[in-house]
Design a binder for these strands. Structure first.
Length: 424
RNA sequence: GGAGAAAUGGCAGAGUGGUCGAAUGCGGUAGUCUUGAAAACUAUUGUACCGCAAGGUACCGGGGGUUCGAAUCCCUCUUUCUCCGCCA
């Protein structure tokens, strides 16, 4: 969430910039400022009374010590009546704090100046294309048919044991998953991201820290009996490692990578674009997460985009990089670049990575701060993350683009990890 | 799952009803000394909110209660440790 102070100091700017995200903040900003005034006033009243009670209590102590019990008992009555006054104020104050917080949480992150206006995916800015488009023979098959033909991914079996969107990978299909995970982790490690293997379930505080809660509650699987959530991405546990942490400025940059299974309910997205591996409830992804000094977070974003581009290039997939428009960006992001690869048989661009700078938006929820050398006040860090990479759509594109009459060719960079160079 | 013990500042650890935001040690920072470093010595060293400031308020695992007053007493939840049981 945005910090209250920032909203107070940049009121008009906040309202203007959020228009890019098609969000009308004028009213909510107004109520926030008003609510905060009321909060301050109430807290001041409360603090004054508490200060009074404290001083009376100290007097009582002294009076008892010096044996003046009568005066002490008089003072006691006074203190009791003050306590009555403070009780109502305390309730009012905590109510105000809850209301203020509920309002703050409703404001999305401010988009970076470079974010184009727009309503949806069609308005994203195509900033770069790379790789070669494969020339497939007539009768090229989409990956769901290839998966069946070579018996490497079984969608029906997944339905039987769990449900739609939970595929079963078999034989070389399973090995290919493992190979991709290892390849990505190794590449990320080489780029300076140190590896984390996080829990796949998180508590409520973590869901809140990265912004999945409260607004995207329906997107996560919830284990009701223990009140835990299955992670939709490793971003959640990894970023939350740094919740309530005050870093030293010289600790930057902090760079982590993590493989995890990801779980998404994808409620409401049935029907379109969900065939085969295009959209799943459970999938594998390797994530990169970075914490950086506010002055350097955009340089880090560029570096991360470059790194992800390198991965896609090594896999020899045709790709494009999009700068997301205001309407297509996530609630929490300030600037996002999406990577899409081309799956030549279904003739579709598939999103395989999303690299974002959240600036201090997540950090404010996480209370992730840092101290500058010689400065007393901690300030909010910047957080960034990106997929490097999400597996299913990479697999979809690999299968489709690399199909030959002899079988499916494995890209060179994966052969050592797989132990085979063709799926036949 | 059963029984018992515990949770205090970056860490270790004192504090069982009043001047305790909290002793002491270690660590960190600044300084003195030194050619430099180490050692020694001196000072300083939590977070948030209100306030121009002085200062005030809150926080001793979380929540609630008793009391004029709670780190300290009571209830409750969570977590950790020890023992027993079960188990990859």
């Amino acid at each position: 969430m945005l910090s209250l102070k920032f909203i107070q100091e940049n009121k008009q700017d906040v309202i203007e910039k959020l228009k890019i995200k098609n969000f009308d903040a004028s009213q909510i900003v107004e109520s926030i400022l008003q609510k905060d005034e009321e909060r301050k006033k109430t807290q001041k009243e409360q603090d004054d009374i508490l200060a009074h009670i404290n001083s009376v209590s100290r007097e009582i102590g002294d009076l008892f010590k010096s044996g003046k019990a009568d005066e002490a008992n008089q003072a006691k009555e006074k203190s009791t009546s003050l306590k009555q006054d403070v009780k109502g104020l305390t309730e009012k104050l905590s109510q105000l704090e809850i209301e203020l917080h509920d309002l703050l949480v409703q404001i999305p992150n401010i988009p970076h100046v470079s974010v184009p206006a727009g309503k949806g995916a069609e308005d994203n800015e195509n900033i770069k294309e790379g790789g070669e488009m494969p020339q497939l023979a007539n009768g090229a098959e989409p990956h769901w048919d290839l998966a069946k033909k070579y018996d490497i991914i079984d969608f029906e079996l997944g339905v039987k044991i769990t449900g739609a969107g939970f595929p079963v990978y078999k034989g070389k299909g399973a090995k290919l998953q493992r190979a991709l995970i290892n390849f990505f982790l190794d590449e990320n490690e080489k780029a300076g991201f140190s590896e984390i293997m996080p829990p796949l379930v998180v508590n409520e505080a973590s869901g809140f820290g990265t912004g999945q809660l409260p607004d995207k509650e329906g997107q996560m699987y919830h284990v009701g009996i223990d009140n835990l959530y299955l992670i939709p991405t490793a971003e959640v546990p990894v970023t939350n490692l740094y919740r309530d942490v005050i870093l030293n400025a010289k600790d930057f940059p902090v760079k982590n990578t993590a493989y995890s299974a990801c779980f998404r309910r994808e409620a409401g997205s049935y029907g379109k674009d969900v065939r085969g591996l295009n959209r799943l409830h459970q999938f594998d992804k390797v994530e990169v997460v970075a914490l950086e000094h506010p002055d350097k977070s955009y340089a880090m974003l560029d570096a991360m985009v470059k790194h992800v581009e390198g991965l896609v290039q090594k896999l020899n997939l045709p790709y494009r990089i999009l700068r997301l428009c205001g309407g297509d960006m996530s609630f929490t992001s300030a600037l996002t670049f999406d990577f899409e690869v081309y799956a030549a048989a279904q003739k579709k661009w598939l999103e395989v990575s999303s690299v974002s700078n959240f600036e201090s938006y997540q950090a404010n929820r996480l209370k992730l701060r840092f101290k500058e050398e010689g400065q007393k006040k901690p300030q909010l860090a910047h957080t960034l993350n990106g997929s490097a990479l999400a597996l299913p759509r990479i697999v979809a594109a690999l299968l489709e683009n690399n199909q030959t009459p002899e079988g499916i060719k494995i890209p060179d960079c994966l052969v050592d990890f797989c132990g085979f160079d063709m799926i036949k």
